[in-house]
Design a protein around this nucleic acid. Structure first.
Lengths: 226, 226
DNA sequence: TGCCATGCTGAACACATGGTCAGCCCTTCC
DNA sequence: GGAAGGGCTGACCATGTGTTCAGCATGGCA
């Protein structure tokens, strides 16, 4: 990804030297891993930006892989805590709820986005938890009359969750095309409004439902993917 | 990503030695770049799997970067051609339409999924084209009464497109959680059916719309992202 | 003051990476 | 038969990478 695809692309690059090296390294790693990916980010690059020597990175974290694990833990903990604080009861809010005005939010979300696509040992469990949470509050939403019942409640939650996470992964495309930054603080009014429209009024008319149902039954020439 | 997250994870690993090195290298590169990412895949790894020497890779393609460009072109061309063949008129079908029973489909889709998140020079243009296509046939759908009109037609298309692509990017999570493989030939009936339900009947009730509209107006403590 | 713990670094190591180079082998054409 | 072209490779090069190692500086405590 080219950095200018995001607004304020360099805003987080400066790391205060007042903080101990241990923390500076972690913060820098989250930033760079999130921007470039783990493999494309060298220990030397992290050290340089953090204002320390490369052996100090290894000294504090043991290895690059262990540093990456520490980043996972930090980011996932941050996101979990943020969600607990801003949880919306009963409405089945987005799976990720972070106050994007907090300094730490952007690099953490960017890191999550990158990690969602690159894979990471802890991530499956994290996504599983998001889905289980959403199953819980979506069921409450159905009970309280805010959410429509579904023939496949679990599948529905999984799909909605992965759509949402997928949008986060593609946040730079979203910014480019829609002008809204899913990991920043500019607001996502258009995204939210349009999503609400889709979820309230639907997308397909009844005519389309019938036409498509018939088409699905007879059209076996291709398996559509995405 | 751990390979076993996908069904038939090794199915495409064997490359026929009957084909010229030029083609074998390209096919192998698409496979490995899609599985591991470009940076994490060495020229030597590609050469070994293709059954050639590393200098031959460079001989034919000039550099690793040029090889990656050739992969982009091949995959995007394949997907464009597939879509042209299977285009569904008027219904606003998925942005990516590939016959997943074709041998080439899986590695191509996997490559696309990886490229969507890692970034690639040609990709923005490809996504733009998908969006423009979808704007066209969604408008036709509205005219023919198959698609509901929207207050933000363009935003709607962008979001639907990015959701769909995002689901592709997270295809391994989708397989793990829903049991359906968006890049394979096992079919995506549950995904399709549930998506249709969401798009036909919506998700939020009218009660929720009112409650959420009110909540959005007054709740300014956090910017929700995804 | 001396010792210990902590934070830190320059130099070096072993290995990996993309790429260069000289040259071999095979096929085709004159 | 000889030359040209294409496909191909072993050896090597320059550079980058994660990590080890020996040792310095500082602060706290007895």
């Amino acid at each position: 990804m080219v950095s200018p695809s995001e607004p304020g692309a360099e805003a987080e690059a400066a790391v205060s030297t007042v903080e101990p090296g241990l923390e500076r390294i972690l913060t820098t790693a989250i930033d760079l891993f999130g921007r470039q990916g783990v493999k494309a980010t060298s220990v030397r690059a992290i050290a340089e930006q953090a204002g320390v020597s490369p052996p100090l990175v290894i000294h504090h974290y043991g290895s690059k892989e262990r540093l990456r694990e520490a980043c996972d833990e930090r980011v996932l903990a941050f996101i979990r805590e943020s969600k607990a604080e801003t949880m919306r009861a009963g409405l089945g809010g987005p799976p990720i709820q972070v106050d994007t005005r907090v300094d730490e939010a952007r690099p953490a979300l960017r890191y999550l986005a990158r990690t969602l696509s690159e894979g990471s040992p802890r991530l499956d469990e994290f996504v599983d938890d998001l889905v289980e949470d959403a199953i819980g509050y979506t069921a409450q939403g159905v009970d309280s009359g805010l959410v429509r019942p579904s023939q496949n409640p679990r599948a529905r939650v999984i799909i909605l969750t992965l759509w949402s996470l997928g949008a986060l992964v593609l946040h730079e495309h979203m910014y480019r095309l829609l002008g809204e930054d899913l990991i920043g603080e500019g607001g996502t009014d258009l995204y939210t409004q349009t999503m609400l429209e889709l979820f309230s009024e639907g997308f397909l008319t009844e005519r389309a439902q019938q036409a498509f149902t018939f088409s699905t039954d007879t059209d076996d020439t291709s398996q559509e993917s995405a």
